[in-house]
Amino acid sequence: MAARRKPALICCGAALAAAVVLAAVFTALYFTVLRPRPPRVTATVVGTRVSAFALIPSPALNLTFDVAVAAYNPNRAAFEYGEVVTVVRYHGDAVGEAVVPRGEVGARASAEVRAVVEVDAVEVFSSPYFPLEGIAGALPFETATTVAGKAVVLGVLKIRASSVVTCGVTVYPLRKETTSPQCTSTVHVG
């Protein structure tokens, strides 16, 4: 009877050793190659256009922000993102919005999308801050760009990530100039 147990023990031991080796290989692969990583997203205001500004006889403002959103995907799988939403705010109130359709960044690749946001002059003029800032000729705006999506590695390992990039820009409409944008980025993983 002891002779029958010996081949069974050897077989079970070999299967256990193979399972341990496979687990070690998959763990090493996960931590070195397959581990999902969040994408790196940056958004910058690459240009502003002031085509009209007047306070008298009636207020007029034609202002457009050009925002470039760049994403780098460090994963070995494509990163699929939903609609990219860019909102322009004047003292916290939304005065313009642009939506870029959903898309995909390939594995270990970069992509850039651009959004053009036209500012709603009526919203700016109705702000209680506008009379003083309009006369002073300096209008502070904030752009906020949101990107959210997921990467799926081997159809099993998933990572969801979202990024919000906020930029502050002061527009001098009389001189048709702007300050360099000051941007901050926040990434949420999970």
Rank of each mutant, 00 (worst) to 15 (best):
R35D: 00
P36D: 03
P36L: 08
V41Y: 02
A43E: 11
T44Y: 04
T44C: 03
T48Y: 06
R49C: 01
R49P: 01
P57S: 05
A60D: 02
L61S: 04
L63P: 04
L63Y: 07
V67T: 13
A71Q: 11
N75K: 10
N75M: 10
A78H: 05
F79R: 02
E80G: 09
G82H: 09
E83W: 02
E83V: 12
V85K: 13
T86N: 10
Y90V: 03
H91D: 06
H91Y: 15
D93T: 15
V95W: 03
V95K: 03
A98V: 11
P101A: 12
P101M: 13
R102Q: 12
G106Y: 10
A107T: 06
R108S: 10
R108A: 14
R114I: 03
R114V: 10
A115T: 05
A115Y: 11
E123N: 07
S127Q: 07
Y129I: 00
F130S: 00
P131G: 00
I135E: 11
I135Q: 09
A136N: 08
G137I: 10
A138S: 08
L139F: 09
E142R: 15
A144W: 07
T145F: 10
A148W: 06
G149E: 04
V153K: 05
V153M: 06
G155T: 08
G155V: 09
L157G: 02
L157D: 09
L157I: 12
L157H: 02
K158Y: 11
K158R: 15
I159T: 02
R160C: 04
S163K: 05
V164P: 02
T166D: 04
C167E: 08
G168P: 03
P173R: 12
R175S: 09
K176M: 10
K176S: 13
C183G: 09
